[in-house]
């Protein structure tokens, strides 16, 4: 919690605050993970700024969590973008949030093509809709599936979907 941001990132944080007033909510760090918490409405613009001005050319990881039962959580979903500056080896995690009943964020596929399948996975597992995504379909589960299994209120053993199949006997074939 107490680690300091390196000067480059501090300057970057100040630049982001100046460019998008009030949208950079806070900065936290924990064991080498440096995080910017940003407002969802400007998340796409801030990520674009970080890519073009901050040098974070690569999106290493994008996923989400459902904070339904998390202690002292205010928002239902948190989405993280792990960025990497390929030239200097710096990492930065940008976190934003989404809420029921209509969890929506702007897609970052126009910035990083690699986000395409990761956003589809988040949509599949949590039901967070990414605006302007070129091909937002379910990816791991069948198209006909109902529900979002990684939400905390979905039972681990499912709702009977794993045993709704016809049974073949040996005499039938």
């Amino acid at each position: 919690m107490s680690e300091e941001f390196p000067p480059v990132l501090q300057a970057l944080a100040e630049a982001v605050s100046a460019e998008f007033p009030g949208r950079l909510l806070s900065r936290t760090s924990f064991r080498g993970n440096l995080r910017f918490h940003v407002c969802p409405d400007k998340a796409h613009e801030i990520l674009k700024y970080l890519k073009t001005r901050g040098g974070f050319g690569m999106l290493v990881e994008l996923s989400a969590a459902d904070y339904l039962q998390y202690p002292d959580a205010e928002d239902r979903y948190g989405v993280w973008y792990c960025l990497l500056d390929v030239e200097n080896g710096r990492r930065l995690i940008v976190k934003t949030k989404a809420n029921d009943p209509d969890p929506t964020l702007d897609s970052v596929v126009d910035l990083w093509e690699g986000a395409n399948w990761m956003e589809r996975e988040v949509y599949d597992m949590y039901g967070i809709v990414f605006r302007n995504h070129p091909d937002l379909r379910r990816i791991l589960l069948p198209d006909e599936f109902v529900g979002h299994p990684l939400r905390r209120d979905y039972p681990m053993r499912g709702k009977g979907e794993r045993h709704n199949f016809p049974v073949l006997t040996r005499a039938e074939g």
């Binding site: 993970n33 969590a65 202690p71």
Partner: peptide
Amino acid sequence: EEVYAATESPNGELGFYIVSDGTGTAYRAR
């Protein structure tokens, strides 16, 4: 807290993003 840590697995960067709620089980193991 939450932490992302990665290693160089044979196939590429294999990382785990753990969200912890203070118990012995991960709240989210991405």
